[in-house]
């Protein structure tokens, strides 16, 4: 039996050198390094500890940890940061504005002033925008296999996507579902080859290549099927659930106007963690950096904390 502990929730506000916004591997790594550098800091983590990593059933490519549930890995990271002296509070950033030589970071319940900021708010699952997707969200349409897999025991499911997340979660779902169809718009999977091969070898899984989801259909009870556009024309598949892994949308709403974003809404970075505004750094899935893995998020977080430390040191000396 596993037990996840609650975060702290002081909600009283603070004046610090560094605010770290986010709760996933990038933020946790930044918190670890900030604590070890002795920076006065606070981590504002929303009520989704561990970020996207915590939603991953099994992570097999984090160096030094051969195979571990995502929630466990992020839990270990958080414990390590806490041991080092990291300070957390459960608050979601609502806005940030420049204030003097620093920033005013507002949340729903408090305000924090900081000399530097690390944006590590990650990304949320992207939607396809097809008919039925919103209507049946929570009634057969899901973005979280880790959360919802128990409802699909012995049922048929469709997974949409071809990247690491889609294939990992399809493999997780194949352990409970009676049958699984992966719908992918290309003719090969983008997931790392080892994962892809495991899916292709899965006896209860099949793949619809070069196919796209056009609509989710259902009745008053929930999802009953999907309409696909396939190379041989429109096809209707009966299914009880649809899991969407078609990319992510960076969680940058509160930072719009503060730092430059790319067309996707990700924080534009140079030198990996620097943003368009001095004193503001970004790390992990929220950035425009191309390769998004737990290990790269952790690396970004460490670099961002180091960059904030150097920035503060420069200002102290000048």
């Amino acid at each position: 039996m596993e037990f996840h502990l609650p975060p702290d929730n002081s909600g009283t506000g603070s004046v610090v050198d560094l605010v770290i916004a986010g709760g996933g591997p990038a933020a946790l790594s930044a918190a670890l390094y900030a604590a070890r550098y002795g920076l006065g800091h606070i981590v504002l983590e929303s009520w989704q500890p561990g970020g996207q990593a915590a939603l991953t059933a099994l992570i097999e490519n984090y160096p030094g940890v051969p195979s571990v549930p995502g929630a466990k890995l992020s839990g270990i990271m958080r414990s390590q940061a806490l041991e080092a002296g990291a300070r957390f509070t459960t608050e979601t950033v609502s806005s940030v504005e420049p204030l003097g030589e620093g920033f005013l970071v507002r949340t729903e319940s408090a305000s924090h002033t900081a000399k530097t900021l690390i944006i590590a708010t990650g990304a949320a699952p992207a939607k396809l925008g097809v008919p039925g997707e919103d209507r049946y969200y929570g009634r057969g349409v899901s973005f979280c296999a880790t959360c919802d897999a128990p409802f699909y025991r012995g049922r048929r499911v469709v997974v949409v996507g071809g990247g690491d997340s889609a294939v990992k979660e399809a493999l997780h779902l194949s352990g409970v579902a009676s049958g699984l169809v992966l719908v992918h718009r290309r003719d090969t999977l983008r997931a790392e080859p080892r994962l892809a091969q495991r899916l292709l070898d899965c006896p209860t899984c099949e793949v619809r290549w070069n196919s796209t989801l056009k609509a989710v259909t259902g009745d008053e009870q929930g999802v009953t099927g999907v309409d696909l556009e396939t190379p041989s024309g429109l096809e209707h598949l009966d299914t009880d659930g649809v899991f969407l892994y078609v990319g992510t949308k960076p969680a940058t709403g509160p930072f719009r106007g503060l730092v430059e974003l790319d067309a996707r809404g990700a924080v534009l970075t140079r030198n990996i963690v620097e943003t368009s505004r001095p004193g503001v750094y970004a790390a992990g899935d929220v950035t425009s950096n191309g390769f998004r893995q737990v290990v790269t998020a952790a690396s970004d977080g460490a670099r961002a904390a180091w960059a904030a430390f150097e920035y503060l040191e420069d200002r102290r000396q000048n």
């Binding site: 596993e2 996840h4 609650p6 929303s46 009520w47 989704q48 500890p49 561990g50 915590a54 939603l55 929630a71 979280c144 880790t146 959360c147 919802d148 897999a149 128990p150």
Partner: peptide, 10 residues
């Protein structure tokens, strides 16, 4: 569900 990281917030 116990495996849902989103759930404690709600």
């Amino acid at each position: 569900t116990p495996t849902c990281p989103h759930c404690p917030g709600a």
